[in-house]
Design a protein around this nucleic acid. Structure first.
Lengths: 185, 185
DNA sequence: CCACAAAAAGAATGGCTGCTCTGCTTACGG
DNA sequence: CCGTAAGCAGAGCAGCCATTCTTTTTGTGG
């Protein structure tokens, strides 16, 4: 049956989503038209609508992609044998920030203030990141600072909160600092 | 000359801008149409365009209004005789957050990532707030912690940075946490 | 009070945008 | 290889929205 193989279908979806992220990073969530994504992806409008129900669906996918990538970076450190100190953790997270994704991330925050679907995605990803940060800090307290595990978990809470806040602030500064790149001609 | 008196003209401008902020807080910067602002303000489209050149101009005015109000709150503490400690300062700032304005503030960040005019407003206001925070913390270090003024200023820098970040993060959380209010019927 | 110019109203407009629809093309299973 | 059902292209459509234009109303200086 001549359906597209799942791998190929997923490939198209990410091809579209990545093109969308590039467009969003340049022009913002609402200012990019389907036509823009059309030329950026090399596909046609019809094709895009074969893979995403509508524009909102595509925006959600893009938001998830950007936020998930940020969470992944954190996941690596959370699983490390030698847990970094909070300061070290923070500066590594900051070093891993990609300006284009930072911009889309901040746009996502703005959209989340009015769109419940985006809001859920952002809140979910934020909670997940904070939890990983919490694990990471707890591991550091136990392994390096030799705290007792149950107390360490409590101690880690405000520290994780602060690291998260400082990271998000840095994300905002990066998004604002970086000039929005020109369309490649 | 039968021109509107300056006071009345300014009144109309803020009437429009405040209606715009309410709309933005509900539906976001781009999803509110001039028609929405028309019904919220009780004025007509023609009238709005008599006071603002175009929608972008109105958005800029709204952004400035919201950000300036936040800076004003901070200004009070900066001028106080008994400077609050950084923790105290932060919790007072957080207590003064208005959910609706927090939403518009976060939307403003998103818009700033692609619109240079908004970006300048946000960066300017952010810098100004950080500077006031810096003064505030320096005053506390000198008056309460009895640091030497020149050293105090240096010490204050990272503290002010952290307070700012924590405040902005709280602003984001407030914007995400608060359900967007319904239109009054 | 009055005259009159500015301000407000609100319908009209033109452009853009999301989305759909009709065939052509392609890749997959046999 | 081939038939077929899907993916895909791209023009077309309907609706919305910022902005403008004309007419009516309003406030102000004299």
């Amino acid at each position: 049956m001549p359906r597209l193989t799942d791998a190929r279908k997923e490939l198209r979806r990410t091809q579209i989503a990545e093109a969308a992220v590039r467009c969003f990073s340049r022009n913002g969530l609402e200012r990019t038209s389907i036509a823009d994504i059309t030329v950026e992806s090399g596909l046609s409008a019809g094709s895009i609508y074969a893979h995403y129900r509508n524009k909102a669906d595509l925006v959600r996918a893009a938001a998830r992609e950007v936020l998930a990538k940020r969470a992944d970076v954190l996941g690596e450190y959370a699983a490390a044998d030698a847990p970094p100190s909070p300061d070290e953790l923070l500066s590594r997270l900051i070093a891993a920030i990609d300006p284009a994704e930072a911009r889309v991330g901040v746009q996502t925050w703005g959209e989340a203030t009015t769109d419940p679907a985006i809001r859920d995605i952002v809140v979910d990803m934020t909670d997940r990141m904070r939890a990983m940060l919490h694990d990471c800090v707890t591991a550091w307290l136990v392994k390096v600072e030799h705290h007792e595990p149950p107390r360490a978990w409590e101690h880690a809470t405000p520290i994780a909160h602060r690291v998260m806040a400082l990271y998000q602030a840095e994300l905002l500064y990066t998004a604002l600092r970086t000039p929005t790149e020109e369309t490649p001609s």
